[in-house]
Amino acid sequence: MRYYDLVQDKKLKKAAEVLGFHQIFSHDDLRTVSSDRYQEILKNVRKGTVIIDPLNERKTLLDPVLAKKIAHKNAGVALTLQSVAEREGLRRAGWIHSMILTVRICKKYGAEVIIVSNAPGPAGLKNPRMLEAFGHTLGLTRPQAKWACSHAWEKVLKG
C-alpha cells in the first residue's frame, strides 16, 4: 500500500523513505485551501483541491452544501496532526471536537478525509501507522483510517 503525507517544509521530503511513505508533498506541490472563512472555502473548491483544517476551535466549517461540493469535485478534507499538537488544554479539546464533527459530516456526504502530519520540522514527522491511529481516534474505523492515508490521496490527486 502506498502512503502519502503533507509537510510544511520541502526539506523534509527526503525522510519519506525512512518513515515508510511513498511520497511526501509540500504545500507548493498541491492546490491547497487553508482558511477559516466558509465563503472562501466554498469559492475555491475545485478538482484536486486539498482543504486544510476547515474548522475552528468552536465549530466545523463544513455543512451539507460544502461537503456535497467537496465530494462532487473529488477534493479532499485534510485534518492535520500539527494543529492538534500546537494547542493545549481546552483549546486542544475544542479543536479535536471540531475535527470529530468534520469527520462525521464527511462520512455522511462521501467527502474524502485525509489524515496528514503537516509537519513544520523533523519532530513533527510521524509514520503512517501513527497517522492511522490518529484518524481512528477521530471516529474513522481502522480500514477508513488506512484509506485516509493512502487511497484517498490517490483519488484526490487524480481529481
Binding site: 496532526l81 499538537a85 510521524k126 491511529a133 481516534t137
Partner: peptide
C-alpha cells in the same frame, strides 16, 4: 492501543529539545 499511539504522535519536545516518538 490506537488512542495511546495517537497520544504519542503529539509529542514534539522532550526536556525542551525537539524530539519525536515513533511507534
Amino acid at each position: 492501543v490506537e488512542e495511546v499511539i495517537a497520544a504519542l504522535a503529539l509529542i514534539r519536545r522532550i526536556a525542551g529539545e525537539p524530539a519525536s516518538v515513533l511507534t
